[in-house]
Design a protein around this nucleic acid. Structure first.
Lengths: 159, 159
DNA sequence: ATTGATAATGAAAATCGTTTTCAATAAGGA
DNA sequence: TCCTTATTGAAAACGATTTTCATTATCAAT
C-alpha cells in the first residue's frame, strides 16, 4: 500500500508471475525504491535505502532480487570500475531517457548524458546488423562508457 | 635476455624511467608475456603463464604490475562481467588493431571484432567534442561492448 | 665495481563485494 | 484454511584483489 504511486496497477506483477516468480514484500519494496530514487546505486545503497522503511529486509535478499530483476531485463547492472556493481531501472512506465555515462577516473563521479543518441542509434543499428551477418552473434545489449576527467578534476591537475 | 624479441630496444624502459619506476625482472617478464600471448587474460592467467618461466614471481606482483601498466596506459583493463578483470596490451610497436568485444552472456566467450571502426571513430570524435563543450568533461578513453548470444548458444536455446 | 637509499618483491593475512547454506517463513493455488 | 514450495535472513563461505611487512634488488652516486 505504501508502494503504489498511481502509475499503473503494479505493472510488474504480471512479469513476475509470467516468469514463475512470486510477488513478495521485498521485491515490491526494492522495485518501488528504484523507481523513485537516484540512478547508479550500489547493492548496499539500495539496502540502506530500503532498510529505513523495511528493516527486516536483508542484504542477501537485495542481491538476489537485483539478480532476478537484471535477468528479467527490468534493471541494468553496470560496472564503473570501483569494485561494486551499480544498478538502475531500465525504464518505468513513464519512460526514462536512454542515456550513457561519463565516468571521472579521478573522483569516480558519474555524469549521465543523453546527447548524440540519435547518431549513436544509427551507428549501432548498422553495427549490430553487420555483426550478426559476419559472426552470427545475436546482440541483445550494448554498453558505451566514456572515461576521463570531470571539470573539477581537470582544474585540480588530474589523476 | 630471453625477453627480447628484436622489435625495439626495450622501448618501454624509457616510459618506466620517465614515470620514476624501476625496470625489474617481473615487469619485463610480464610485458614480454603480454606482447606474445593471447588477449583478454585474467591476472591468474598471466600469473600462470609467467610462472612457468619465472616461478619466483608471485601473484601479488602480477596485480601490482598490471595496475602500474594500466595507469601508464600500456595495457587496458576490462570487465566482462565474470568477476575477474581481463587485461590486454594497448598496442605493441608492431601496432595491434583497435578492436572491441562481443561477449556471449551464456558461455562468456569473447569475440574480437574490428569492423565498423571507421564509422565508430567518426561518431566518437563528434561525441567527444560535443561532450567536452557541454559538460567540460575531458574524455581520455572509451569502452564499447556488445552483449548477446554466440552462434553455439543460440542453437542451444540461449541462456 | 662498491655503496647506500629506497623502490620493488613475495608470502601471508586482511579486505570486501558477492554467494552459498540452511532452517524458518510466507505466497498463493487447491 | 491447508499445503506445497519459493523465498527469506543470518551466518558462513567464497574469491578476486589489496595490504602488511620483512627481505631483496635496482640504480644513482661514488
Amino acid at each position: 500500500m505504501p508502494m503504489s504511486r498511481g502509475f499503473g496497477p503494479m505493472w510488474w506483477h504480471g512479469r513476475f508471475r509470467g516468469c514463475g516468480y512470486r510477488v513478495t514484500v521485498p521485491r515490491e519494496a526494492i522495485l518501488d525504491m528504484l523507481s523513485k530514487s537516484d540512478k547508479h546505486l550500489s547493492a548496499e545503497d539500495i539496502y540502506m535505502k530500503v532498510h529505513t522503511r523495511y528493516p527486516a529486509i536483508g542484504l542477501t535478499t537485495i542481491y538476489r532480487t537485483l539478480d532476478i530483476l537484471a535477468n528479467m531485463g527490468l534493471i541494468f547492472k553496470f560496472d564503473f570500475g570501483d569494485g561494486r556493481a551499480r544498478y538502475e531501472l531500465v525504464e518505468g512506465p513513464k519512460g526514462k531517457m536512454h542515456h550513457h555515462h561519463l565516468i571521472c577516473t579521478s573522483c569516480n563521479r558519474i555524469i549521465d548524458y543523453t546527447d548524440f543518441i540519435d547518431d549513436e542509434v544509427e551507428l549501432l543499428k548498422r553495427t549490430e546488423k553487420g555483426l550478426l551477418k559476419k559472426y552470427n552473434f545475436k546482440i541483445t545489449n550494448h554498453l558505451i562508457q566514456f572515461y576521463g576527467l570531470c571539470e573539477k578534476c581537470q582544474k585540480k591537475g588530474g589523476d
